[in-house]
Amino acid sequence: MEKIQENKDTCKEVLSILAFCDEEIIKKIPTQVMRKLMEIAADSEESYYIEKNKKLCEQYITEESKDLISLIFYSYIADENEKKELLDAWNKNEDVYQEKLREKYNPDNIFEKRRTTYNEHAITNELAVVEYKETLINKIINKIKKLFKIK
Protein backbone atom coordinates (compact mmCIF):
# COMPACT_ATOMS: atom_id res chain seq x y z
CA MET A 1 0.00 0.00 0.00
CA GLU A 2 1.28 3.45 -0.90
CA LYS A 3 2.42 5.54 2.07
CA ILE A 4 0.58 8.84 2.52
CA GLN A 5 3.07 11.60 3.12
CA GLU A 6 2.54 14.01 6.00
CA ASN A 7 2.00 17.69 5.15
CA LYS A 8 5.18 18.84 6.88
CA ASP A 9 7.22 16.40 4.80
CA THR A 10 5.43 17.42 1.61
CA CYS A 11 6.36 21.06 2.27
CA LYS A 12 9.97 20.10 2.98
CA GLU A 13 10.22 18.01 -0.18
CA VAL A 14 8.67 20.79 -2.28
CA LEU A 15 11.12 23.31 -0.82
CA SER A 16 13.98 20.99 -1.76
CA ILE A 17 12.68 20.96 -5.34
CA LEU A 18 12.14 24.73 -5.41
CA ALA A 19 15.75 25.19 -4.28
CA PHE A 20 16.78 23.88 -7.71
CA CYS A 21 14.36 26.10 -9.60
CA ASP A 22 15.24 28.88 -11.96
CA GLU A 23 15.46 32.29 -10.29
CA GLU A 24 12.66 33.54 -12.57
CA ILE A 25 10.32 30.93 -11.07
CA ILE A 26 11.27 31.84 -7.51
CA LYS A 27 10.62 35.53 -8.20
CA LYS A 28 7.01 34.74 -9.14
CA ILE A 29 6.17 32.79 -5.98
CA PRO A 30 4.88 35.16 -3.26
CA THR A 31 7.10 35.54 -0.21
CA GLN A 32 4.21 34.62 2.09
CA VAL A 33 3.79 31.29 0.33
CA MET A 34 7.49 30.48 0.65
CA ARG A 35 7.51 31.55 4.27
CA LYS A 36 4.46 29.42 5.06
CA LEU A 37 6.01 26.40 3.36
CA MET A 38 9.11 26.87 5.49
CA GLU A 39 7.12 27.25 8.73
CA ILE A 40 5.35 23.98 8.06
CA ALA A 41 8.55 22.27 6.87
CA ALA A 42 10.29 23.19 10.14
CA ASP A 43 8.46 20.29 11.83
CA SER A 44 9.77 17.78 9.30
CA GLU A 45 12.64 15.51 10.19
CA GLU A 46 13.13 14.20 6.69
CA SER A 47 15.96 15.04 4.32
CA TYR A 48 15.31 15.09 0.60
CA TYR A 49 17.75 14.59 -2.21
CA ILE A 50 17.63 15.05 -5.92
CA GLU A 51 19.13 12.85 -8.60
CA LYS A 52 21.63 15.00 -10.48
CA ASN A 53 21.07 13.58 -13.94
CA LYS A 54 17.30 13.25 -13.98
CA LYS A 55 14.58 15.59 -15.20
CA LEU A 56 11.93 16.78 -12.75
CA CYS A 57 9.39 14.31 -14.14
CA GLU A 58 11.81 11.43 -13.67
CA GLN A 59 12.74 12.30 -10.08
CA TYR A 60 11.43 10.11 -7.31
CA ILE A 61 8.95 12.52 -5.74
CA THR A 62 5.84 11.62 -3.75
CA GLU A 63 2.42 12.10 -5.36
CA GLU A 64 1.53 14.73 -2.74
CA SER A 65 4.60 16.80 -3.57
CA LYS A 66 3.88 16.53 -7.29
CA ASP A 67 0.39 17.90 -6.61
CA LEU A 68 1.73 20.78 -4.52
CA ILE A 69 4.36 21.70 -7.14
CA SER A 70 1.62 21.63 -9.78
CA LEU A 71 -0.61 23.82 -7.62
CA ILE A 72 2.20 26.35 -7.19
CA PHE A 73 2.88 26.28 -10.92
CA TYR A 74 -0.79 26.86 -11.74
CA SER A 75 -1.28 29.60 -9.15
CA TYR A 76 1.84 31.71 -9.64
CA ILE A 77 3.91 30.72 -12.66
CA ALA A 78 1.63 29.68 -15.52
CA ASP A 79 0.22 32.35 -17.84
CA GLU A 80 -3.48 32.47 -18.75
CA ASN A 81 -3.14 30.12 -21.75
CA GLU A 82 -1.13 27.64 -19.76
CA LYS A 83 -3.74 27.74 -17.01
CA LYS A 84 -6.46 26.86 -19.50
CA GLU A 85 -4.33 24.04 -20.94
CA LEU A 86 -3.66 22.74 -17.47
CA LEU A 87 -7.32 22.78 -16.46
CA ASP A 88 -8.18 20.84 -19.62
CA ALA A 89 -5.41 18.34 -18.93
CA TRP A 90 -6.48 17.93 -15.29
CA ASN A 91 -10.12 17.38 -16.31
CA LYS A 92 -9.15 14.81 -18.93
CA ASN A 93 -6.79 13.04 -16.54
CA GLU A 94 -9.55 13.10 -13.94
CA ASP A 95 -11.89 11.20 -16.27
CA VAL A 96 -9.23 8.56 -16.84
CA TYR A 97 -8.45 8.43 -13.12
CA GLN A 98 -12.14 8.08 -12.16
CA GLU A 99 -12.64 5.41 -14.79
CA LYS A 100 -9.75 3.44 -13.34
CA LEU A 101 -11.20 3.85 -9.83
CA ARG A 102 -14.63 2.70 -11.07
CA GLU A 103 -13.09 -0.36 -12.65
CA LYS A 104 -11.21 -1.14 -9.51
CA TYR A 105 -13.89 -0.52 -6.90
CA ASN A 106 -17.29 -0.72 -8.67
CA PRO A 107 -19.44 -3.20 -6.64
CA ASP A 108 -21.39 -4.21 -9.77
CA ASN A 109 -18.16 -5.33 -11.39
CA ILE A 110 -17.19 -7.26 -8.30
CA PHE A 111 -20.61 -9.07 -8.18
CA GLU A 112 -20.58 -9.54 -11.93
CA LYS A 113 -17.21 -11.17 -11.66
CA ARG A 114 -18.38 -13.44 -8.86
CA ARG A 115 -21.59 -14.33 -10.72
CA THR A 116 -19.65 -15.17 -13.86
CA THR A 117 -17.32 -17.35 -11.90
CA TYR A 118 -20.28 -19.12 -10.23
CA ASN A 119 -22.09 -19.65 -13.54
CA GLU A 120 -18.99 -20.97 -15.21
CA HIS A 121 -18.58 -23.36 -12.31
CA ALA A 122 -22.21 -24.50 -12.60
CA ILE A 123 -21.91 -25.04 -16.35
CA THR A 124 -18.70 -26.93 -15.90
CA ASN A 125 -20.38 -29.12 -13.29
CA GLU A 126 -23.42 -29.69 -15.50
CA LEU A 127 -21.47 -30.70 -18.57
CA ALA A 128 -18.77 -32.62 -16.90
CA VAL A 129 -18.50 -36.33 -17.71
CA VAL A 130 -18.47 -38.19 -14.45
CA GLU A 131 -16.31 -41.21 -14.50
CA TYR A 132 -17.99 -44.25 -13.04
CA LYS A 133 -15.81 -46.16 -10.70
CA GLU A 134 -16.80 -49.70 -9.78
CA THR A 135 -16.23 -50.48 -6.15
CA LEU A 136 -14.91 -53.85 -4.95
CA ILE A 137 -18.28 -54.89 -3.49
CA ASN A 138 -20.05 -53.97 -6.73
CA LYS A 139 -17.51 -56.04 -8.64
CA ILE A 140 -18.23 -59.09 -6.46
CA ILE A 141 -22.01 -58.60 -6.73
CA ASN A 142 -21.75 -58.23 -10.48
CA LYS A 143 -19.67 -61.42 -10.76
CA ILE A 144 -22.24 -63.36 -8.66
CA LYS A 145 -25.03 -61.96 -10.86
CA LYS A 146 -23.14 -63.07 -13.99
CA LEU A 147 -22.58 -66.52 -12.50
CA PHE A 148 -26.33 -67.00 -11.88
CA LYS A 149 -27.19 -65.10 -15.07
CA ILE A 150 -29.20 -62.52 -13.20
CA LYS A 151 -29.69 -59.20 -14.99
Partner: peptide, 22 residues
Protein backbone atom coordinates in the same frame (compact mmCIF):
# COMPACT_ATOMS: atom_id res chain seq x y z
CA UNK B 1 18.17 23.80 -12.78
CA UNK B 2 14.45 23.22 -12.88
CA UNK B 3 12.74 25.53 -15.35
CA UNK B 4 9.18 26.50 -16.20
CA UNK B 5 8.86 23.77 -18.86
CA UNK B 6 9.90 21.08 -16.36
CA UNK B 7 7.24 22.22 -13.92
CA UNK B 8 4.63 22.40 -16.67
CA UNK B 9 5.45 18.87 -17.83
CA UNK B 10 5.02 17.60 -14.28
CA UNK B 11 1.77 19.53 -13.75
CA UNK B 12 0.23 18.22 -16.99
CA UNK B 13 0.37 14.68 -15.67
CA UNK B 14 -1.77 15.39 -12.59
CA UNK B 15 -5.52 15.06 -12.17
CA UNK B 16 -8.09 17.51 -10.81
CA UNK B 17 -9.15 15.71 -7.63
CA UNK B 18 -5.53 15.30 -6.48
CA UNK B 19 -4.85 19.01 -6.99
CA UNK B 20 -8.06 19.99 -5.15
CA UNK B 21 -7.22 17.63 -2.30
CA UNK B 22 -3.80 19.23 -1.93
Amino acid sequence: TIGKDDMKELAEGRHKSGILRM
